[in-house]
């Protein structure tokens, strides 16, 4: 099927508006189905997790990246994954003294391009999908992390800040459900 000389599989890109609007349709549908922002946040996180455990395969296959030696290494990888999949370049900053916790600052975010949050949705974490993706992807490379939003420009904060914290190394990587 693939025409020789056409764009290589690696650079398959699509218009970000399709992505943005589709994600928006998902979030608004979730809000209708659950009626409670906390449940929506949880659902988004779960979906993100599912995406994360699969996207890491794609990332490793395409970047042939080596094992991370420390969290700084990991942070850099996460940053490059955002660049690769969403075309944004978040800043890695605010390291904790122990170097086990950092922030990603998003000055632009295609996910929120056309988004305004009504006052009734102030507890909604619109981009909570990200937290799930990071958690899922890291888990597949034996890293347990947690992540959460500290600031959200949709809620009037000056920037969007996502915090990622190292929890522990997973020693035995058993597939889920086979203990």
């Amino acid at each position: 099927m693939a025409r020789p000389g056409a764009r290589v599989a690696d650079s398959k890109k699509i218009n970000s508006e399709l992505f943005t609007l589709t994600y928006g349709a998902l979030v608004s549908q979730l809000l209708k189905d659950y009626e409670n922002a906390e449940d929506v946040n949880r659902q988004l996180d779960r979906m993100g997790y599912n995406i994360g455990v699969r996207i890491i395969e794609d990332f490793l296959a395409r970047t042939s990246t080596a094992r991370c030696t420390d969290m700084r290494d990991t942070a850099e990888k996460i940053q490059s994954a955002f660049k690769m999949y969403l075309g944004v370049n978040p800043t890695v900053t605010s390291w904790s003294p122990a170097s086990d916790e950092f922030s990603l600052l998003f000055d632009q975010n295609p996910m929120t391009e056309f988004v305004e949050l009504p006052d009734s949705c102030l507890s909604l974490k619109y981009c909570n999908l990200f937290c799930g993706i990071i958690r899922g992807a890291c888990e597949m490379v034996q890293l347990e992390v947690t992540s959460w939003f500290v600031q959200d420009s949709l809620k009037g904060d000056p920037t969007t800040e996502l915090r990622v914290k190292f929890v522990k190394k997973l020693e035995d990587a058993m597939p889920a459900g086979e203990d």
Partner: peptide
């Protein structure tokens, strides 16, 4: 602006 097709597919 563009994003990855794989991301969208997931």
């Amino acid at each position: 602006n563009e994003v990855s097709l794989n991301g969208f597919a997931l």
